[in-house]
Amino acid sequence: MTTMTLEQDIDAATDANQYLTFQLGGEEYGLEILKVQEIKGLSAITTMPNTPAHVKGVTNLRGAVVPIVDLRIRFGIEERPYDRFTVFIITSVGTKVVGLVVDAVEDVIDLPPESIQPVPELTSALGGAYVRGIAQIQERLVALLDIEKIVSADLELIERS
């Protein structure tokens, strides 16, 4: 029993430092791997009435109805048609499962907490409120997203309506 938990703790500790990186409007972003449930190719989206533009609709994820959020629209990056690299990153936040549309997925990288720097004065195209930190890997800059904030901002919408 004790050893089990210990092993799980160790696993969790290493997983917690891993990030899935993806492309969006020519920049690189990262998401905690623990919040990512799976990566899924494009599938049919059913639009929903009276929802914000970035909520593209819902899709069928093995029988579950999952909302799809287009991160380009969400962050005010110019829209472009989906291509063969476009994927859904299915994230699970609390009890909710939400899909994010991104241009392409890149890599899974290890980032020890000390390599993550606080967000500087905003340089990126996207609202700084949703960035948890910035990491530099050789020449690349990766903005780490706070998925909980992104999703909960949409959930607040619910409370108001």
């Binding site: 929903m48 819902v58 109805v65």
Partner: peptide, 26 residues
């Protein structure tokens, strides 16, 4: 299927379902 599970209640919609072609329908 209920929409609230992952999203929220929509006006005029009581839920969703998945039709034979795999698409979600309200």
């Amino acid at each position: 299927k209920n929409l609230e599970a992952n999203y929220r209640k929509l006006d005029g919609v009581m839920g969703a379902t998945i039709l034979g072609d795999g698409r979600v329908s309200l």
